[in-house]
């Protein structure tokens, strides 16, 4: 890690210097190392087909992670994304199976996602329910409610000629469409966070909520906006997932792997759970890292429980690093900061 030499100020400890480095570059470096290791140990890893496939599979959780990052930047967290992504995708396929036109179904479910986002926002911003519990509950309510009200099959397949299936096939300007869409989301999110007033205020709010409020920022509407963005991106990610898989099974699980992957990407990308810190570049780096890791785990033939263990270990390491780089201040730490 030659990065420490970049910062010339002598009075900083190595930890502080490391904390100041953009974690995106750091993670990109590790990803490159991982790729190198993969190329040496696993044949068939560094082929054009595999890399393209890897990126295509990473598109869905990359998009999900962007939404999650926007919320976490504002010191919230959104656990409902997996529920929204899968539930809405399932419901869309169910409507299509019942003969509704595709765009109508998508518009309807976009409405549902919007409502979930707004409800999350209101619960967190106006009713001041801890975000963890509010979004945990709304996520379960979304997927459970959709299951009870809208689904009557265990298995839905995606019609081959639908717009959703087009999401992950074909290409735009020579780039596979899934990668193009994900890229567009990353660029837009980067512009939003870095150059718009709302984006900057969101980060300010995550850094110090009280100061942002005192300075007159519309903190509550901004929080709602964050959750709405997250829910809509979750919808897109859900379509992307279905598009890649070609079908969905509709058994409800409490914590879906999709949510877990999105959180991993966000945290590894340096978006600190204490809010206000992190960049979209970091999220991109995190998505690439997780994509490469997943691909390598599969190529090495690890069973899915073992993959869970490895991913869990990686995430623990990332959170531990975050906690080490940006420790809680014992003087200001509150007991209810979960």
């Amino acid at each position: 890690m030659g990065v420490a030499a970049v910062d010339a100020r002598p009075d900083l400890s190595p930890r502080d210097r490391l904390a100041r480095v953009e974690q995106g570059f750091f993670v990109l470096g590790i990803t490159a190392l991982l790729c190198l290791a993969g190329a040496v140990t696993t044949d068939g890893f560094l082929t054009g087909g595999n890399v393209e496939n890897l990126l295509r599979l990473s598109a869905a959780f990359g998009i999900l992670a962007v939404g999650e990052a926007v919320v976490i930047l504002a010191k919230g967290i959104d656990l409902s994304v997996a529920g929204v992504a899968l539930g809405c995708a399932q419901a869309t396929l169910a409507f299509m199976a019942d003969g509704m036109s595709e765009w109508q179904a998508i518009a309807l479910l976009a409405g549902v996602a919007l409502v979930v986002g707004v409800v999350n926002g209101i619960l967190v911003a106006y009713l001041e329910v801890p975000a963890l519990f509010a979004t945990l509950a709304t996520g379960l309510l979304t997927i459970g409610g959709i299951d009870i009200l809208l689904l009557d099959q265990n298995f839905y397949s995606l019609p081959a000629s639908s717009a959703i299936s087009e999401l992950s096939s074909g290409s735009v300007l020579g780039v596979p469409r899934a990668i193009f869409v994900a890229g567009a989301v990353f660029v837009l999110a980067w512009l939003f966070v870095s150059y718009t007033v709302a984006g900057r205020l969101t980060r300010a709010m995550g850094d110090n909520f009280d100061t942002a409020r005192s300075s007159g920022a519309p903190v509550r509407p901004l929080q709602v906006l964050g959750y709405v963005v997250s829910a809509l991106l979750a919808l897109l990610a859900g379509y992307m997932t279905v598009s890649v898989q070609g079908s969905v099974q509709t058994t409800v699980t409490s914590f879906d792997p999709l949510l877990f992957t999105a959180l991993t990407v966000t945290v590894i990308g340096g978006v600190s759970l204490s809010g206000g810190r992190g960049t979209i570049l970091g999220v991109l780096a995190g998505a690439l890292f997780v994509g490469v890791l997943n691909n390598l785990l599969i190529l090495r033939g690890l069973s899915s429980p073992l993959q869970d263990l490895v991913r869990g270990g990686v995430l623990i390491a990332a959170i531990a690093l975050d906690a080490w780089l940006h420790p809680r201040d014992e003087e200001t730490a509150r007991s209810d900061e979960l």
């Binding site: 073992l306 869970d308 263990l309 270990g313 623990i316």
Partner: peptide, 10 residues
Amino acid sequence: LVTLVAFGGA
């Protein structure tokens, strides 16, 4: 949450 998934994997 992470250990929930990790222990579940185990």
